[in-house]
């Protein structure tokens, strides 16, 4: 593909997804656009790129194809074990009247994290309880992937028990698609964590903020952790990535958080010396 075509595409991808393709990766771009070009009846990638600039549907498909991202299901295992063994039972014990859980996958990427939680909820959430998972990402292309809920064979091999594969997915061509009941539990929303506020996102019982803070500078990272505190229930749990710590926080931010060890996982919880607010009938009436 010509240099001009490559730069056009790279700029488009950067704008939509914040993913940077530098010139050394032009072969990757070409490889991923090739089947789309063929399907669209174009004789060359350059011709296809011209089509992409004027056709919104093709543009969407092209961005989709260029943001393939392989991550694992139940990544690192321990956080999901902590969820099932400790976080879920503890949250449930404090919500016996309302019987609802809100969960936020705060940098959801292609959705394996959100759907992994959905699978565990299907297995462990008792009848009479409801749960909602909000999956947000700065990349609209990723959000589309989450909405579609389709994964390649290679992605399906990564950390997903075979019994869950057959229970929660159906095959579509070379891909596997998550079944509707689980797809319906996950709501996607565009959100840039670096924004100064997250209007309307709501309050959550459990937030996963895994392996994303590393992409931000210190001030932004601190801002995100302040905002997370605002959107987490007083008895809620925040999980970061396995190798992420929150050392070197400014004292006032540090004071907002307690750290609790759950097995091999460290959870952050809003620092509080008072017990969780009891649920009153007045609150329920207004809820």
């Amino acid at each position: 593909m010509g240099q001009e075509s490559f730069q056009l595409i790279a700029a488009m991808v950067l704008r939509e997804t914040s993913i940077i393709y530098d010139e050394r990766k032009d072969y990757l771009v070409e490889a991923r656009l090739h089947p789309l070009a063929t399907q669209a009846g174009c004789a060359s990638i350059d011709e296809y790129v011209r089509l992409v600039t004027i056709n919104a549907e093709e543009r969407r498909k092209a961005i989709d194809a260029l943001t393939i991202n392989e991550t694992s299901w139940f990544r690192d295992n321990a956080p999901y074990q902590a969820f099932t063994e400790t976080i879920l039972p503890t949250l449930m014990a404090n919500r016996t009247t309302r019987r609802h859980l809100s969960i936020w996958s705060a940098a959801c990427s292609s959705g394996q994290e959100a759907y992994s939680i959905a699978m565990l909820l299907d297995q462990h959430l008792p009848a009479g309880w409801t749960a909602e998972i909000v999956a947000t990402d700065v990349s609209t292309a990723m959000l589309t992937r989450v909405q579609k809920g389709r994964y390649s064979q290679v992605e399906m091999n990564r950390g997903l028990p075979a019994t869950s594969l057959v229970k929660y997915f159906t095959r579509v061509g070379t891909e596997f698609e998550i079944i509707a009941p689980l797809r319906e539990k996950v709501r996607t929303r565009h959100l840039n964590l670096a924004d100064p506020a997250y209007p309307g996102i709501g309050t959550f019982d459990f937030i996963l903020l895994r392996n994303v803070l590393i992409y931000f500078d210190q001030p932004t990272k601190h801002g995100i952790l302040r905002r997370m505190h605002q959107h987490l229930a007083p008895d809620g749990y925040l999980l970061l990535g396995s190798s992420e710590t929150t050392l070197d926080l400014p004292p006032d931010l540090n004071a907002l958080w307690d750290r609790e060890q759950l097995g091999r996982v460290q959870a952050h919880r809003p620092a509080t010396s008072t017990p969780p607010r009891p649920i009153t009938t007045a609150a329920l009436a207004g809820a």
Binding site: S72, F74, N77, A78, Y80, Q81, F83, T84, E85, L120, N157, R158, G159, P161, R264
Partner: peptide, 15 residues
Amino acid sequence: VEKLEILGLVGRGIP
């Protein structure tokens, strides 16, 4: 490797 972890033959398994 990840499948063997699930099986508990390597590292730790998932719930």
